[in-house]
C-alpha cells in the first residue's frame, strides 16, 4: 500500500528536467621563464582543464613523457610529435618550480 501511495510523487520529482552551467576557472597555462606555454595550451586543454596538470606533484621528465604517451595512446590525444619537446620542457620547468609550501 505504502509503495503505491508514494509512487506518483516519486515519478513527478524524478521527471523534472535538469541543467547545469559549468565553467573553466582553472585558466590557461602560463609561460615559465623562457618556457612558452603555447604548446601546453594547444595540446593539453581539449579533455580537461589545466588544474589536472598543474596540481600534480613534481614528476620527473620520464614520468611526464609517460603521461603524454598515455594521453596519446589511451585517450587519443592528437599531440604533434614536433610539440613534445616544448611540452616536456614546460612540464619539467613546472615541476622544478614546485617547492613544499
Amino acid at each position: 500500500m505504502r509503495a503505491l501511495f508514494i509512487l506518483p510523487a516519486l515519478l513527478l520529482i524524478a521527471a523534472a528536467p535538469q541543467s547545469l552551467v559549468l565553467s573553466d576557472e582553472d585558466g590557461a597555462f602560463e609561460d615559465i621563464a623562457r618556457n612558452s606555454a603555447d604548446a601546453m595550451n594547444a595540446n593539453c586543454l581539449a579533455c580537461h582543464s589545466s588544474a589536472m596538470v598543474t596540481h600534480q606533484p613534481a614528476l620527473t621528465p620520464m614520468q611526464w613523457r609517460e603521461t603524454i604517451t598515455k594521453m596519446k595512446t589511451v585517450y587519443k590525444a592528437p599531440i604533434e610529435a614536433a610539440d613534445e619537446p616544448a611540452l616536456i620542457a614546460w612540464l619539467t620547468a613546472h615541476s622544478a618550480r614546485q617547492k613544499p609550501d
Binding site: 580537461h48 596540481h55 600534480q56 606533484p57
Partner: peptide, 26 residues
C-alpha cells in the same frame, strides 16, 4: 600534501558550496 598543495575553496557552480576545487573540467 607538501608540494602542489594549495587549492581554491569556492562555489564552483549552482548547487555546490565551499568545495575544494581540484579541477574545473570535468
Amino acid at each position: 600534501l607538501g608540494i602542489a598543495s594549495t587549492r581554491p575553496l569556492a562555489d564552483p557552480f549552482e548547487g555546490k558550496r565551499a568545495m575544494i576545487v581540484q579541477r574545473s573540467l570535468p
